[in-house]
Design a protein around this nucleic acid. Structure first.
Length: 270
DNA sequence: AACAGCACCTGTAGGC
DNA sequence: TGCCTACAGGTGCTGT
């Protein structure tokens, strides 16, 4: 469910609330959500001070006093919310971290997410490409030149660029006027430059709207995002293109649903 | 070595 | 109402 804008929204609203807090206790309700298997997560973080919370790609990274770190990945259906102790826990609550101001709760019905203990030496950006909001077109171009996969599929590869998922890949490609099916290494320099700009524009706008809520996504206060109201292609199959009125096409690419305007991508060749 | 395909899980929406 | 199928914001493994 959550891509970069949704994770960024959660991190921004949680950072001030966990900063400097001491973990009173952690309750691991589903040990198989903890990695590596066998980690005594509750034991590791009890009585520890949280000194920072940052996002890297789609990961939420907690930094503890003393240098230990761990991160939470929300998978498709994960939520990380801060709630008062008295509020009943939702079904599929797998982890509760008790801190001064309440309980940080990880809820994840599909369990594609997880909690990853890094200790002092584990690197939260292992296997992740650059942050798209800090990426230069030259770097994007060099990375895309190494693969012949469809550009849409390449954008979903977290080691090529970190944080883009199915919604924002489609939205950025539409904004750049690029056919999602063309080979990544066949983009012209102009197209790479447009795509780099579109990725930033779309992600920044989505963050301003606090992310997209299609079904599951909620922020740290349980509130939905609003960016879905201004999606231009994602989840708009058959609806008129907001630029030219042509019905939006949905295809399956690399196993993921993919949306584009058949007319706009022809107008924007090269 | 890169890449496509599928598996992992549960919930929900839509068709009949 | 209920049963069935399709599909969902992600990623990791397997086999080619």
């Amino acid at each position: 469910m959550p891509e970069l804008p949704e994770v960024e929204t959660i991190v921004r609203s949680l950072r001030g609330r966990v900063f400097g807090q001491i973990v009173k206790r952690a309750q691991v309700l589903r040990p198989d959500m903890i990695h590596p298997p066998g980690t005594d997560f509750a034991g590791e973080i009890a009585d520890r001070k949280i000194i920072n919370l940052v996002r890297r790609g789609k990961k939420i990274v907690f930094e503890l006093e003393g240098g230990d770190r761990f991160f939470i990945h929300l998978g498709m259906s994960g939520r990380l919310t801060m709630e008062p102790v008295g509020v009943p826990r939702r079904a599929h609550t797998h982890l509760v971290i008790e801190i001064g101001s309440g309980e940080l709760r990880l809820v994840d019905p599909r369990r594609f997410g997880g909690v990853f203990w890094l200790g002092r030496d584990g690197r939260p950006d292992a296997g992740l490409g650059p942050e798209p909001l800090e990426m230069h077109a030259g770097e994007l171009g060099r990375r895309l030149a190494k693969t012949r996969r469809a550009i849409k599929t390449a954008l979903l590869d977290q080691k090529l660029v970190a944080g883009i998922g199915n919604i924002y890949a489609d939205e950025a490609l539409f904004t750049a006027g690029i056919d999602p099916r063309i080979a990544a290494n066949k983009l012209s320099a102009d197209q790479v430059a447009r795509l780099n700009r579109s990725i930033k524009t779309v992600l920044k706008r989505a963050i301003l709207h606090r992310g997209s809520t299609l079904r599951d996504y909620r922020d740290a206060d349980g509130e939905p995002g609003n960016f879905q109201k201004v999606h231009r292609v994602y989840d708009r199959k058959g609806q008129p293109c907001l630029v030219c009125g042509t019905p939006i096409t949905r295809i399956v690419l690399g196993g993921r649903s993919t949306h584009f305007c058949g007319k706009c991508i022809k107008r924007n060749k090269s």
